[in-house]
């Protein structure tokens, strides 16, 4: 059989290079009970250099997941609790006067780390959110006259609570778009929760071992970019994103009044990158429609603006994405 050399070789290459994914999964599963989707999403974000917005009620192991991941990758981790009185300087750092040197010195903030957990990001006002989101976008921070590059890998995991919206500052659409994925976490299954309770009662908490170096992640990111994505898959991605903008062109006339704005070009880019990362996690050198569908909800759910009509009919972004996926023909 004459197989295309590039894809065959790439597939073999990725098989070898992605073996650490299984190790990460194994270590994560030692500590995190259930939440398979969360772990997968963390890996997709980590491997595709994208940040994640997590939505879930408190107590679903969000902090534990990211601290465990940082331990596994041997990376630094900081948690920042966003509060209404938080200032950009508390996050990024500031200039302080050194009496010993008789000059202003830079005091770096907690964002100078590999993994940042921005807990309850919507509790802080827009200026703090903007400071974080600019850092996420530019991957560098300017304090005074000095500009500092952030260490790689740099992953921001922001959380927000779906309940208790009083006294919060919802992230503007333009800011939310900068998150590659918005992951919605649900409660664990009954059996999983039983295990969690037992672990807590026995005070026996397994610990994860460090199995990967940050350099491995950076190298893996390069390989993820090489994952082959066929033109048919690209067209499939574009069809999905365009259906969020012009549903009437895809036989979804009833969604026309439900959507204020659809996914941006960033949505198409992120859907393609996340699909590649997902294929990598599944240890494949090429993207298949299953990969696109697996990450589609996480990539698109925060990029679709719902109209009042949709809200009146209790329709969510989730429903719209599902309907689009059930209508667009799979290549």
């Amino acid at each position: 059989m004459n197989q295309s050399v590039n894809v065959k070789e790439l597939n073999e290459h990725i098989r070898n290079e992605s073996s650490f994914v299984d190790m990460i999964n194994m270590e994560m599963n030692k500590v995190i009970v259930g939440q398979k989707h969360l772990v997968e999403s963390l890996l997709v974000g980590l491997l595709s250099d994208g940040h994640i917005l997590l939505e879930g009620v408190p107590g679903l192991a969000k902090t534990l997941a990211i601290s465990t991941l940082s331990g596994i990758v041997d990376a630094r981790f900081n948690r920042i609790q966003f509060t209404p009185d938080l200032l950009p300087a508390d996050l990024l750092g500031t200039m302080i006067y050194s009496q010993q040197k008789e000059q202003f010195m830079v005091k770096k903030g907690p964002i100078f780390t590999n993994f940042v957990l921005a807990d309850e990001i919507n509790r802080s006002p827009a200026k703090v959110q903007s400071a974080l989101l600019e850092a996420m976008q530019e991957r560098q921070i300017t304090i005074g006259e000095d500009t500092f590059k952030l260490d790689q890998p740099f992953l921001v995991l922001a959380t927000q609570n779906p309940i208790e919206q009083e006294g919060t500052y919802p992230l503007p659409e333009a800011q939310v778009d900068r998150f590659m994925l918005k992951v919605v976490i649900d409660y664990p299954q009954q059996e999983e929760e039983k295990l969690i309770v037992r672990q807590n009662l026995a005070k026996e908490f397994p610990t994860a071992s460090q199995v990967v170096k940050p350099d491995d992640i950076i190298r893996a990111r390069g390989i993820v970019k090489e994952v082959y994505i066929d033109e048919k898959i690209e067209q499939y991605i574009l069809d999905i994103v365009f259906a969020t903008r012009y549903p009437e062109n895809y036989g979804l006339d009833h969604l026309q009044g439900m959507i204020n704005y659809g996914g941006s070009p960033r949505a198409s880019i992120n859907l393609a990158i996340a699909s590649k990362a997902y294929a990598f996690i599944k240890r494949r050198g090429y993207v298949i429609p299953e990969d696109v569908r697996a990450v589609c909800h996480d990539v698109l759910r925060h990029r679709i603006g719902l109209s009042y009509e949709a809200e009146a009919e209790n329709m969510t972004g989730e429903d719209i994405i599902t309907e689009i996926l059930n209508t667009i023909e799979v290549p």
Binding site: M1, N2, V7, D230, I233, I288
Partner: peptide, 12 residues
């Protein structure tokens, strides 16, 4: 068929 369509496979 998926392999041929999405992975550039050239079957015999």
């Amino acid at each position: 068929a998926d392999l041929v369509k999405f992975a550039r496979m050239q079957p015999s």
